[in-house]
Nucleic acid binder design. Structure first.
Lengths: 404, 404
DNA sequence: TTCATTTTCTCGACTGTCGAGAAAATAATT
DNA sequence: AATTATTTTCTCGACAGTCGAGAAAATGAA
């Protein structure tokens, strides 16, 4: 409502609409696009012609036949219009993927993080090198890459593609935009990992025919705790954010967090927090850098056999999550919660605590507890979120840059 | 991004732009509108002509003179285009105001709430009667009222104008839209009181020339605790919400809240919570319905004279607020906090606790504590928020309904 | 009375969407 | 093999909106 509108903007909006419809459904005919977008057939003609001339779309060669009349000609995004690089940064590996504009994976490799080297400088060098290698392997020019989409756990300034705080680098900031600025013309995007999970789940929910999607939250359980929230704003577009949930204050009793503060949710519900509680280590002990999953599996096994402290540790983790979720719902609104991450193996042990932690709040008493469901396959969802977000951004770019 | 665009929509958007500019600045000339909105002079001509024909605008009679050339003719909203009713519901009184489309107050009266009568049914009757009386006093037809804007503390379904939970009626819902539905053609709007404070403050901040407004929070201290958040979304329009802050879980130690849950922020920081802590009443005591301000003034006086438990009570209230604010900032982002309400008389006593409560969180360590300022005159701000919101809604309606 | 100055108004060009019907391309029918 | 029916795509003219330029209007100064 702040900026003036014009006929050109109308065209941009409608072009974006066509691209979005095509992105959703793969390939559509002229009439299908018209039905999907609500645009008049004549308008679709003009827009597709323009996009075709710009090399964004092409008529698919294989025409599915069936009907009687004139055969429908399907439009598809041209896979060679451009490329997308996706980088998933996790604590142990960094995964580099090359994707074409059609959304199909062309190449992928992992690099194991060198835990000897600390700090952002060697990491940045390795990062730039790996991107270069990704290009070489597919004999791709650098300028064919339209976007580089990066994800990490932690706190992110997504507008500027700056990592503000992360489990791996702490407060050491890392500016990805500046890192690639001179050489790469690609749009550099940085997103919190759990935000991408929420984005992917929201996209799935929106595709469902029953419709009526309003909002959802994704929580990732692991060494650290992540939250992504996706909400449909009243203007109609999806609003995703990654609040600093893991380091939201839970209760001082949760003890020392690796961020340096006391009482974060993560300090109780992260793997190291559970470990600490189970072994009755003093709560102000400096947290372990890494907790092997095998270690937690052992605690879980003894909890399942009735060991008191082990059970207590998971219950406390659950309460921290339940309280945190209830606070989140107080500030937003009632919405389903999807739980992912390596920690879902212990979800059964945490659930009673979660329910206890939820039940304490007025929000839950008034509107009922949120639906909580477990979603496996976090990494796939993160990748899907990358595609959703980055290809969407590229499409939006195409629509706005006038297609000169 | 979900719906198609068209040239008519462009006109709507630009009409809304003109109305908003006029609303901001009172009355503007043709060229000033053009400068303010960025629209071409020719476009402004067409739009103003249309609005003038529809009776929304008029050329102001008094022409301010000064310059040399052709005198500028100012456009003003026509005050008699329609009317607006504002109803402020507070715990002791209900205030009814009649405002014209130009935003000037025409009539106002208060009704003291009858505390003998409980429940929504007698209230609803009194409400409808009072509106009728407001019309009669100004000899106004009911259909001249374009909007009825109501505010209350508590939890609100603003889309449906339903009060979901309030300090006065508890869980008894009250559907204002249904109450006025058959007789009144006016748009019925219901807003949380502190949301309106945030709206008013945000509007003030946006008017400032230095610009760069991003977000702010308003907190109202009193018998209950309210929060309003105003944020500029990336699409550019203002996004205000009233999270259920007062009943967000603080800590179980806060004791029984009048909502029935344990540990709400309000149970520690609301007037009755402070009273309870100061007098060392057990924390599970059922809260007092009303606490006279004189009572709290006495506690504050003894706290200022060094009385231990009185000081402790205010400190605990501050910690609850500080923790709550830090959690709010974790979920949104760093933003200035404005404190209003009758409780600001004790702000000096709470501030140390607030700072202590803030300091515990990672968010504050990382990005620094938010600016906290005290804003008196809550009631005026609520009223301003009403005008801002309701007149804006009317303007938006005018722009969208095609001006047939 | 004329001129300079400033504001408002008007006209034609341009961009965009839309509905209707023509054109195209195929399957079914004669 | 020719014709007809059917479905899809394409094209044309009408309509809505914005914009820049310049004409027209209205006033103070010369």
């Amino acid at each position: 409502m702040l900026t003036k509108s014009s006929t050109e903007l109308v065209r941009q909006q409608n072009s974006a609409l066509v691209l979005a419809a095509l992105r959703r459904a793969g390939n559509l005919s002229h009439t299908e696009i018209s039905a999907e977008t609500g645009l008049a057939s004549a308008t679709v003609s003009v827009i597709t012609a323009e996009l075709e001339k710009a090399g964004v779309l092409a008529k698919a060669e294989q025409q599915v036949q069936g009907g009687r009349g004139r055969p429908r000609v399907l439009f598809t995004p041209r896979r060679d219009y451009g490329h997308l690089v996706v980088v998933r940064i996790s604590s142990d590996i960094v995964q580099y993927s090359l994707i074409d504009y059609g959304g199909t994976l062309l190449d992928r490799f992992d690099e194991t993080r060198n835990h000897g080297e600390r700090g952002t400088v060697p990491f940045a060098r390795a990062f730039v090198d790996a991107l270069e290698r990704l290009l070489q392997r597919s004999r791709l020019e650098r300028d064919r890459v339209l976007a580089v989409s990066i994800s990490s756990k932690g706190l992110v300034d997504s507008a500027a593609a700056r990592l503000l705080w992360s489990p791996v680098f702490g407060r050491e900031e890392l500016d990805f935009a500046a890192l690639l600025a001179p050489q790469w013309r690609a749009k550099v995007m940085l997103s919190n990992e759990t935000l991408l999970v929420a984005q992917a789940l929201a996209a799935q929910a929106e595709r469902k025919p029953e419709g009526g999607f309003r909002a959802l939250a994704a929580i990732s359980l692991g060494h650290s705790i992540g939250l992504g929230v996706a909400r449909k704003s009243q203007s109609g577009d999806m609003d995703v954010s990654a609040p600093n949930f893991g380091h939201m204050l839970h209760a001082p009793s949760a003890g020392l967090c690796r961020c340096g503060a006391y009482g974060c949710i993560e300090a109780a519900a992260g793997f190291y927090g559970i470990l600490r509680a189970a072994f009755e280590v003093p709560a102000d002990t400096i947290p372990a850098k890494f907790v092997p999953v095998a270690e937690l599996d052992k605690i879980a096994a003894s909890a399942r056999q009735g060991h008191r402290m082990a059970g207590y540790a998971f219950r406390q983790a659950g309460i921290a999550l339940g309280n945190g979720i209830s606070r989140m719902l107080s500030l937003y609104e009632r919405m389903p919660v999807h739980v992912t991450g390596p920690g879902i193996r212990y979800f059964d042990l945490m659930l009673p605590g979660i329910e206890e932690g939820l039940a304490q709040s007025m929000q839950v008493r008034l509107q009922g507890a949120p639906e909580i469901s477990v979603v496996p396959d976090e990494q796939r969802l993160v990748f899907e979120g990358h595609l959703e977000r980055a290809l969407g951004a590229i499409d939006a770019d195409i629509a706005t840059t006038g297609l000169s």
